[in-house]
Amino acid sequence: MDQAQALKELSRIMQDVLDDPSVALSPGTTAADVEGWDSMTNITFVVEVERQFGVKFKTAEIEEMHNVGDMLKMIAAKKS
């Protein structure tokens, strides 16, 4: 899965999490950029990404996840 495809998947997951089909994530997107992306949404999103991508983020990784791009890099590293 390339970066663009993974980004599309992340957008789709966030659309489901927020029930908002207009959500479009980019590597630079942070929680503050998306309406409804609060701390609870964040955990729901992370857990759902883990489930759908079949990965598990480390405690340190979750701490260092500042935007969607960080998450994409971590997924890519785990999937390679």
Binding site: S39, I43, T44, V47, F57, K58, T59, E63
Partner: peptide
């Protein structure tokens, strides 16, 4: 334990 440390969730969201 990751979610416990991060979000104090004692029950996994799944």
């Amino acid at each position: 334990p990751v979610l416990w440390h991060k979000a104090k969730q004692a029950v996994h969201p799944a």
